[in-house]
Design a protein around this nucleic acid. Sequence first.
DNA 1: GTCTATAGATCGATAGAC
DNA 2: GTCTATCGATCTATAGAC
Lengths: 195, 195
Amino acid sequence: MSQLTDRQKQIVDATLDIIATIGIQNLTIRKLAEKVGVTEGAIYRHYPSKDEILVSVAGYFKSESTVILQQIIDSEGSSVHKIKMFFLGRCRQFKDNHALALVLFSDDIFKGSGRVQAEISATIHSHGRLLVKIITEGQDSGTIRANIVAEHMFMMIMGALRLLVTRWRAADFGFDLLGEGEKLWASIEALVTPS
Amino acid sequence: MSQLTDRQKQIVDATLDIIATIGIQNLTIRKLAEKVGVTEGAIYRHYPSKDEILVSVAGYFKSESTVILQQIIDSEGSSVHKIKMFFLGRCRQFKDNHALALVLFSDDIFKGSGRVQAEISATIHSHGRLLVKIITEGQDSGTIRANIVAEHMFMMIMGALRLLVTRWRAADFGFDLLGEGEKLWASIEALVTPS
DNA sequence: GTCTATAGATCGATAGAC
DNA sequence: GTCTATCGATCTATAGAC
């Protein structure tokens, strides 16, 4: 974690790019070196092993994904507004950083390297708990329908976002994710707010 | 497609099992042969290549996932009942066949073998269109809230199911998927039916 | 249809010159 | 810090005996 050198940042970016385009099962040091523009041996001057590169990728994911959470905690709006901020904020992040969508929504990328897997799922889990808490607060204050399990509401909202992003990736990023995200959010808000 | 020999079925089952446990990036002919109980050379008597085994896996997925769709088409219930049948039917299928959940909900399993990837996503897409059509019919007949885009409603329902299954897998199948699915469905039904 | 044995390619990682 | 060169392991796939 902490700070990466310029080369390390290049390597992490190249790794994400390769995973996004040809899948983790085709991620090799050779292809990585080729994309960075150095030889295979040079890669090992910056990382001791391939696994350690994936650890770095996971760290990058963690810091990026936490940014929006902090903005929400500091925000003053209603519960619905906070969740909307998260929802559209993620769309904006993915639009600016396609590879991030991949890391956040692929369950099997880090399978095999157990340590990385555990860290990522812990992060996702803690973020989820925060959002469920916000939903519960909204239910208590009457801005969100109260006769539904908050956890289930969270699953529908995040699940829909994930499906949207999955389609966006399948379409080779060929539509406006933020625009479609706003439309989808309008439907979600209509469903979860009291009528 | 068509019929598999007993050995081919064994190989497909073993493939799914390996993918489910240690990930596709660790799927090798050696591990496959070991699990089936024969040597590596023997595998190639039943399949010409590793890729062709994955094609078989995809075919198996396709036939399994279509079963419930046909039941729904033939059913006589309301739109809400049909979607519930699909939702809980999938839970039941996954409970009986853990590996199926993996194939249905992993975007990156078949990345790299473009032909398989295309076939699977086409199947998922056509199933989705059928469910959206059922939702639209429900909206027209008044059993489903009509002021929401049907496509978005579909995304929330399927997204929630996916998230539930993802958690079930992460928990090593350690809770009752069908029971939790029924609770989740109750929340979904409360949200999507007119109040 | 299964075995042993092996070819040929590619993988992660290292050594040593510069 | 990058290069060339290479090691040892492992991969997919094949050949030939039984």
